[in-house]
């Protein structure tokens, strides 16, 4: 297997073969990220395409410090955020919403067995503003302060959106696991 440093070097020298090798190796993982942040498969493809173009264009800035995959993932997530901002800036109402911490239903903490594509389906069916905050906070690990800067919303809105996203997801996952348990137990 080719060492990633050699592939990056080849990409920087303009080798189309190395560029394709890098793409083929990492596209499936990054496409999964794109699907998490998008409403449709077409949008996910656009994010992946633009993301990879940026990756290749900025490859000389990668200093081989830290995970290369993490570096690429950040670029793809930023591309998704740019697309989201471009689409939602015109009619964003997040900041005027009141911040009421929603009540979660009684929890069901046995979530084992929920498959990845089902989780993805649930995330993609969230309203976009909830989906973005949940992805950035729960999956990527950003703080509310960072998210508020990324999405140009207040920290309070970020928290509120996260709570709403969690409530919705918790209900869906509980329903899923509860139904699954009832089916299994007859």
């Amino acid at each position: 297997m080719n060492d990633i440093k050699e592939i990056i070097k080849g990409c920087l020298e303009g080798s189309r073969r190395d560029q394709e090798l890098l793409y083929r190796r990492h596209a499936p993982k990054l496409y999964g990220v794109c699907l998490q942040y998008s409403d449709s498969d077409e949008e996910a493809r656009d994010i992946l395409q633009e993301g990879f173009i940026k990756i290749f264009q900025n490859l000389q800035n990668y200093k081989h410090e830290g995970s290369f995959e993490g570096w690429m993932r950040r670029i793809v997530v930023n591309t998704a955020l740019e697309k989201y901002r471009a689409r939602h800036n015109l009619y964003r109402v997040d900041d005027i919403e009141t911040i009421n911490e929603p009540e979660a239903e009684p929890g069901n903490d046995d979530y084992a067995g929920v498959q990845a594509d089902d989780l993805l389906y649930l995330i993609r069916n969230l309203p976009p503003k909830y989906r973005m905050v949940f992805n950035l906070y729960a999956i990527e690990g950003y703080s509310h302060k960072e998210i508020s800067e990324m999405l140009s919303i207040s920290e309070g809105t970020s928290k509120s959106n996260l709570s709403r996203a969690r409530v919705i997801l918790q209900k869906k996952v509980s329903l899923y696991t509860g139904l699954r348990r009832s089916v299994i137990n007859g």
Partner: peptide
């Protein structure tokens, strides 16, 4: 818990573009 379900569940998710 719900955060972890999604973080761990999607950690290795891949799809072929």
């Amino acid at each position: 818990n719900i955060d972890l379900v999604f973080r761990n569940g999607l950690k290795d998710f891949e799809a072929l573009p």
